[in-house]
Amino acid sequence: MSLEKADIEKIAHLARLGIDPGDVPVYARNLSGILDLVERMERVGTDGVPPMAHPLQMVQRLRVDEVTETNQCDKFQQIAPQVEAGLYLVPKVIE
């Protein structure tokens, strides 16, 4: 499968990555190569093989429902560019 310029731009947008227009052909070639590999793998017979959700053959460990965290808001907010009244401030977003 070969990806077009528009596909690359859409993928970059979904991932919020800024890419140099000059690099688009390289990305298209590399990503298409990965999709080709997937296409080849799809030809392998997998009937009766359960889909793998995780490479480790283990099950999820569960924790007890207890509050173990303390308030470290001040510490976390030291690295935030802008805070006010306990809130993190970000450029205005309205749907």
Binding site: E66, V67, E69, N71, Q72, Q77, G86
Partner: peptide
């Protein structure tokens, strides 16, 4: 629940902003 789904931070309603958001939640 008392704590969050994937962290040990409290879920109590109406707390001061960001006082119940731990490193996992962030």
């Amino acid at each position: 629940t008392k704590s969050k789904i994937f962290s040990g931070a409290a879920t109590a309603y109406g707390a001061e902003p960001n006082t119940q958001a731990c490193a996992v939640d962030l």
